[in-house]
């Protein structure tokens, strides 16, 4: 029944935001932000379960922990960037939201650099053998 609760919180927040927007737009924004944070925190626990499953899967299959760490970092960056960008977009600053998303993308790409390094090194090492 959690879904019902969350839907209720969302609807309530939306109606209150509509009411407040006429009087005090800043409080409407704050309300929207806190509703968002509340729902996010409720769901973080569920995400934890999914991540735990992923860890188990990785452990059982013997995937190096580096890969899992990278993937988890990537998910975290994506969530935080997306969440912040949505709140900022709610406040009406689309440009700033785009910058936050851009930062998230850059940080995800930065995570890929060591992997790219290893692959490039391997390819370079293969070249004399192949030629």
């Amino acid at each position: 029944m959690e879904m019902v609760q969350i839907a209720g919180i969302g609807l309530l927040a939306a109606i209150l935001v509509l009411v407040l927007k006429e009087q005090k737009p800043i409080f409407a924004f704050l309300l929207a932000m806190f509703a968002g944070i509340f729902i996010f925190l409720l769901m973080v626990g569920k995400i934890e379960a999914v991540i735990g499953t992923m860890e188990q899967l990785a452990e059982r299959s013997g995937i190096p922990s580096v890969y899992l760490k990278t993937i988890l970092k990537m998910i975290g960056i994506a969530y935080i960037a997306e969440f912040a960008a949505q709140i900022i977009r709610d406040a009406g600053a689309d440009g700033v939201a785009a910058k936050v998303e851009f930062a998230g993308k850059v940080l995800i790409l930065v995570l890929a650099v060591p992997i790219i390094n290893v692959i490039v090194e391997t390819v370079v090492g293969l070249l004399p053998a192949g030629g």
Binding site: Y67, T70, I71, I108, L109
Partner: peptide, 9 residues
């Protein structure tokens, strides 16, 4: 972007 990283892995 995530697809790039997972693809690399």
């Amino acid at each position: 972007y995530a697809r790039l990283v997972t693809g690399l892995i």
